[in-house]
Design a protein around this nucleic acid. Sequence first.
DNA 1: GTAGACGGTCGACAATGTAGACCGGAGATG
DNA 2: CATCTCCGGTCTACATTGTCGACCGTCTAC
Lengths: 110, 110
Amino acid sequence: MASNGYLGEFEQMVLLAIMQGGEDANALHVRRELEENANRSVTKGAFYTTLDRLEKKKYVTWKARVPESGRRGLAQRHFRVTPQGVDELRKSRQALLKLWRGLEGLLDAT
Amino acid sequence: MASNGYLGEFEQMVLLAIMQGGEDANALHVRRELEENANRSVTKGAFYTTLDRLEKKKYVTWKARVPESGRRGLAQRHFRVTPQGVDELRKSRQALLKLWRGLEGLLDAT
DNA sequence: GTAGACGGTCGACAATGTAGACCGGAGATG
DNA sequence: CATCTCCGGTCTACATTGTCGACCGTCTAC
């Protein structure tokens, strides 16, 4: 069971990409964010599967929004990270910052 | 296939913990490092399984070392992260640093 | 209309995360 | 010495994550 709640590597990136998008975090934004920052191609399958699992864990919520212009009648999911999600993100970040301590020289970009 | 080479969440932490230990990265060091920095209990099974997989991917190597004092005759594995391993670590780090950009306020420790 | 894009859903399978049972050697103790 | 216990390590098995590709429907551009 995911009793511990640790975020997987990809889950973490998805959550962060959503936050980067702010209120308008729709699929396009998020996927673009991931591809640009993580150099990572994201297929729809991988993307939505992960989102659904994050939703089940209460780390993200979403609401359907019907765009006024274009695509009328076709709802889109707009995502948002829950406070619990942010909390997990914070924990992961703290752990990594600690583990990186002292290794910056080796780990900085070339 | 792990053709992409992304590091899993735990794999990453293990690699970092080894680097933190320097030359003397033995099981005890590494596990202690993980438990302290990541608030995470690490069972032997989880630990060694991960190490073996990292070895298969050429991200770590190890040599047996026979301690002079105590436990004579009982070799211990001493781990070291390979350049390729360091490289992967660097990539993950770069990605996270980018994705965290602008969110520090929300993600800093409470 | 009709071919792309694009948002989204599903089902399946590979890789990673995690536990627990086991084995053997070393040090302590009676 | 008998044996108890701690510890590094190995192995098997199973839960959770990561990743794809096939499908569907709705637009937009030809």
